[in-house]
Design a protein around this nucleic acid. Structure first.
Lengths: 344, 344
DNA sequence: TTGTATGCGTTATCAT
DNA sequence: ATGATAACGCATACAA
């Protein structure tokens, strides 16, 4: 290992003190332009690379932001990450990313790693398995900004960024009702997650508003992946009478459902109108195109990061007193899969 | 800011020297079990958190691995990242991820950031825009392991992990020929990228093998997104005679093509047989299911990371002498979109 | 098995 | 506008 060039070497070369070099490198205003230039010339000439280890040791900051997501290889999550990366990059921050794989234990381990890595802030979307958020207490205690997104801890006193899942599901269900649907099946994921719990609420509210009865047999739990359609449809085909509407909490799964409905000879939307969720690419590519809820992942990531950054310079404060929830706009995008009244 | 607990505090509390505490914490064998236990008790009692800044400063390691990808929100790339995260996590390493957004300039900036952040190793998939890899020279000079994946720098002397794109495209094209296709259109991305250049080669080789002439008018350049189908199909419809085979370098785009072919009244696979690439979820959800090349992203990520880790403990060495290329197996998955001989 | 002394490269404080 | 000096908290060479 060759000897590293330090600010001492630069200082000696230029004929100033290390302090001045440090200041110049950090663009401190109180350094004469001339000396600054000389210093930067020497930096280039000598191939100096700042040692962030030492800098971190002094400043107690890493410029790293931690992100914990359930899965990296999810359409929605990777859009969120893309948005976060953009905002972080613009602010000169790095992103340290890890996935919980929906496991509470892994999430805890990841949170610990993040803490020990001394991230300056942490963004989290909870695992479906997660029962409490005690593992984030060290962050709160140390005043490290912590922000939840999408899958948030509702009554934790921590800020969360979400879309209004209740309203979105309400709109989706109302839309189906407007199309004349009388029996609407709702397919959703693990109800421990706020996202799905809220959508179920929205579904129920819509029924209420329209004076329709809630029928528990029309609720189907699923892991919502692209293979789940087969099982879901086999359940649906056993319902009597058959439903005439289907609201699936995820586009890939909705696409899979449509596929299997077709295999059963069911026409979409004539026999069963379908609404998905996410506005994934897939909703625009299957036949018929799927009516869906636009879930602004990229924007959510960007906003979450920008919000976190705001709190980065307030040490010891964290977000504790900032108990609010930030809700993003989402819209129902109506496409062919749900439009019964074609003649209208 | 409260005073941090250091190994000095622990040492004082237990009645040993800081050195012993340091050794105990690092599970140095030469520490008596009893003292070790006392030390760990004190650690718990006093709420000690190791200061990695100081540790890094001494060891000159961050335990951070940098990853630069063209886009985070891509199906394939996020699978790769998932695989990398798993392998890194198991090895106690963090992942710092950034995206180049296909821009050379951004990639350079990201590489610089990674270098200044002192990542212990770097994994890169090149931007389509990238013209040279001089911006990685600092890594090579310092002996920081550098590994390319998927989109690699062919003649750089750096190790790359890829699938055999030539062979995959050869197989795909041969399959179409076996189905009786005589005029096969190939849709591909920026030819500066090894991935697409190689696939074009494979396509040509297949024609050669079958004594068919290469017709440049059957090659369509595209950015391969899910909206590209419209333009591609409008080009195809102008060809005379119409082609009877279509090999698209990406499933989302293939799906979009199928959609627009159908709108034109073309039957798949009877009139035109279609093969995609990637084995994305979408290939299993559109009608007909798309024949495609399974592109093992997760495995690629895992393998790339494991390979990098191997080189982490060989300072000053890098991967310079290790000029080989690691090629992953990929298979053609035959589905309905390409099977002309249904009666067989 | 344990301890002493020192350096890692920077930034912050205080002084000039 | 610049400089001297002292931390920051740990790991390691060397000593015992």
């Amino acid at each position: 290992m060759e000897k590293e060039i330090t600010i001492y070497d630069i200082a000696k070369d230029v004929g100033v003190s290390p302090t001045t070099v440090s200041r110049a490198l950090n663009h401190h205003p109180a350094v004469h332009e001339k000396t600054k230039k000389k210093i930067f010339d020497a930096v280039l000439k000598m191939g100096y690379q700042s040692n962030i280890f030492a800098a971190n040791l002094r400043t107690k900051r890493t410029n790293n932001i931690g992100v914990i997501v359930p899965r990296l290889n999810s359409n929605f999550q990777s859009s969120v990450l893309a948005g976060m990366e953009k905002a972080a990059n613009e602010a000169g921050l790095n992103l340290i990313i890890s996935q919980s794989l929906e496991s509470f234990e892994k999430e805890k381990a990841n949170a610990n790693t993040m803490f020990n890595s001394r991230v300056d802030g942490l963004l989290v979307s909870l695992a479906s398995d997660t029962e409490n958020i005690d593992h984030y207490k060290p962050f709160l205690r140390k005043g490290i900004p912590l922000l939840f997104f999408d899958r948030i801890a509702e009554q934790s006193g921590c800020t969360g960024i979400v879309i209004d899942n209740i309203q979105a599901a309400l709109n989706a269900t109302n839309h189906l009702i407007e199309q004349g649907c009388k029996r609407i099946v709702h397919v959703l994921g693990n109800i421990k997650i706020n996202v799905y719990a809220d959508r179920l609420k929205g579904y129920k509210y819509a029924l209420l508003e329209n004076e329709m009865l809630f029928d528990p047999s029309l609720i189907i739990l699923s892991d919502l992946n692209e293979e789940a359609g087969e099982e879901i449809i086999s359940k649906i085909m056993k319902l009597n009478p058959l439903p005439d509407g289907l609201f699936v909490s995820n586009d890939a799964c909705a696409a899979s459902c449509i596929r299997h409905l077709k295999l059963e000879g069911i026409r979409i939307p004539e026999d069963i109108a379908v609404v998905g969720f996410n506005n994934d690419v897939i909703s625009r590519l299957v036949e018929p195109n799927i009516t869906t809820v636009n879930y602004p992942g990229y924007e959510m990531g960007e906003l979450a990061m920008k919000n976190l950054i705001k709190h980065l310079d307030k040490p010891n404060e964290g977000m504790l007193e900032n108990t609010n929830k930030i809700t993003l706009r989402s819209d129902l995008i109506i496409r062919k899969s749900s439009k019964k009244e074609i003649s209208l």
